[in-house]
Simulated scan of single mutants.
Amino acid sequence: MEALGFMFFSTVETFSMYVFIMSVFRYKMTDYIWQALIVILLANVQSFILRNELSVPYLAPLITILIFIFLFTTVVKIPVIWSAIMTIIGYVFYALVQTVYVSFLFGSVREAQSTDWNGYMLQLISAVTVYLISWVLYKFGLGFSFDMEKLRLKFEHILVLSLIVICWALISVILFYNHIWLNVLFFAASFAVFIYYAIKKETV
C-alpha cells in the first residue's frame, strides 16, 4: 500500500513539474506525454527504492533532475545547456510552491512529514497548483520563447551520449554493490530510453 501511494502521488507531483517546464517555455507537452510518463514512472520507482532500501533520500532529487535533463535533451531535443536551465527553473518553482504550502498548512517540514497522508496531501495540493499555473501560462501565451539552438554545443550528441553512459555506469555500480538488483534494471530501462532517442535524434 505504501509503495502504491508513493508511486501515485510522486507521479502526479513529478508530472506537474514536466507540465510546468513545457508550458513556461512554450512547448506542447502532449507531443511527448507518453515518453515523459514512462520515464517519470521509472524515475519514481528508483526514487522509492533509494529512499526505502538504501535510505539515501537526498540522492532522489539529484537523480530526478538528471533524468529530466536527459529527457529534454534526447526526447524533446533541446540543447543540453537549456535542458539544464529549464529543469532547474521547474524544480525550484515547484519547491517554492511546496514551501509555501508547508508554511501555511503544516507550519514545519517535520509536521508535513509526520504521516504519509500529510505528505500525500502536500504533494497533491502542490501539484494541482502547479498544473493550474501551467494551464494559465499556456492558455494566455505567457512564458519564454528563445532560439535555443544558439546554445547547442558542437558534437553535443556525443557529449550527451557519454554523460548518459557515465551516469548509468556510476549509479549501477553503487546499486550493484548494495545488491539492489531490481533498481539496476529500472535504471537500465530509463537510460536505454535516453540512448535510443539520443541516437534517433541524429538519424531523423
Rank of each mutant, 00 (worst) to 15 (best):
K154S: 14
L159T: 06
H157V: 15
L137W: 00
S134F: 01
L159E: 01
D147R: 06
L159W: 06
L161R: 10
Y131K: 07
S134P: 02
I133R: 08
L153K: 00
S162Y: 08
F144H: 13
L137C: 05
L142H: 00
V160R: 05
I133W: 00
Y138I: 11
I133P: 03
S162A: 14
W168N: 14
K139D: 14
L161W: 08
I133E: 00
F144D: 10
G141S: 12
K154V: 15
I164W: 09
Y138C: 09
F144P: 06
V160K: 02
V160A: 03
I158V: 09
L132Q: 14
W135G: 04
F146Q: 04
Y138G: 06
I164N: 05
L151E: 13
Y138R: 11
G141W: 12
L137V: 00
L153D: 02
S145I: 11
I166V: 10
K154D: 05
I164L: 11
C167V: 14
F155M: 07
L153H: 00
L151A: 15
I166G: 03
K139H: 14
H157S: 11
V130Q: 07
V130T: 13
I164E: 11
E149K: 05
L163I: 13
W135I: 09
Y138H: 12
L132H: 06
L142E: 00
Y138M: 09
V136Y: 10
E156D: 11
L163G: 08
L161G: 12
F155C: 02
L142V: 08
V160N: 04
L163R: 08
A169K: 10
M148C: 02
K139S: 09
V160S: 02
R152F: 06
S162L: 04
C167R: 15
Y131N: 02
Y131M: 08
L132W: 09
L137G: 01
I133L: 08
L137E: 03
M148F: 09
S134C: 06
W168D: 13
S134T: 05
L132A: 13
V165N: 08
Y131A: 02
I133A: 04
I166D: 01
L151P: 09
F146V: 05
A169G: 10
I133N: 00
K150F: 07
R152G: 05
V136H: 05
I164Y: 07
V136D: 01
R152S: 04
S134D: 03
Y131C: 04
V136A: 09
G141D: 11
W135D: 00
L132S: 08
V130W: 07
V130I: 15
F155G: 05
V130R: 03
V130K: 11
L132N: 10
M148V: 13
F144T: 09
L137R: 07
V136T: 14
K150Y: 12
F140N: 08
S162K: 08
